[in-house]
Design a protein around this nucleic acid. Structure first.
Lengths: 113, 113
DNA sequence: TAAATATGACACCAAATGGTAATATGTCAA
DNA sequence: TTGACATATTACCATTTGGTGTCATATTTA
């Protein structure tokens, strides 16, 4: 199939889809409501929503003849967790640099007793 | 041009590029060193590195006939910040839910004085 | 200087992507 | 029950993407 990150990152790559997520942050929406915010056909918007669902960035809830689209945490978490690995990486680099500077200063002060 | 997020998310969408980032987490590498880890031509790897650079996920440092590729924080930050907006969103929802539960319990206890 | 090495620059190809339009299906409401 | 409405399905199109191969250029190094 597709790893959790792959589905999420693939979905996040398109600016329209990221805008859809922002809109769904305000409230859940039907396909028609989402496509009101965009200058493209409902068909195109629906395709984007399908890809967002595949990435677990939204969940879809059929209700009568409508289809409610709702923001979902899972995919966002998957992507955020992946990125967080690198933030940890830089934090460590930064603290290593700080230790080095502190040692430098300690050595400097020892030179003039 | 391209917004900071767009470049970063576009670059992150491809699994090969995400793997490259992981490899560069271990150490800086030339194009040849990066492509040693993949079953594809140097040309293909170079294209991926270009897209990573455009997304500010790596910085490139020419050194003689070599080209050193190094992990860069900017793009990762841009993407992580964007995703973080939604994490904040859910944290608020969750705490609102908890408050609701607490109020519910308080109201319950008031029923039997 | 000549050969080996690392990369750059193209042209090309198949498949995926983002969009359209037309038509069909299911559901609500007068 | 008959429209009207929301969505589903399908076929089609242009562009982008991820890959290849070939040849050129620049830099070491024997």
């Amino acid at each position: 199939m597709m790893s959790a990150e792959q589905g999420a990152f693939r979905a996040l790559a398109d600016p329209t889809r990221r805008q859809i997520l922002m809109h769904l942050g305000s409230s859940d929406m039907t396909i028609a409501q989402v496509s009101d915010h965009f200058d493209m056909t409902r068909g195109a918007v629906r395709k984007h929503l399908t890809i967002l669902e595949e990435g677990n960035l939204i969940s879809v809830h059929p209700k009568g003849r409508e289809r409610i689209n709702r923001l979902a945490p899972e995919g966002i978490r998957a992507a955020a967790d992946w990125l967080n690995y690198f933030n940890r990486f830089w934090d460590e680099k930064l603290s290593a640099l700080q230790s080095a500077i502190e040692n430098e200063q300690r050595n400097e002060s020892e030179k003039q007793p």
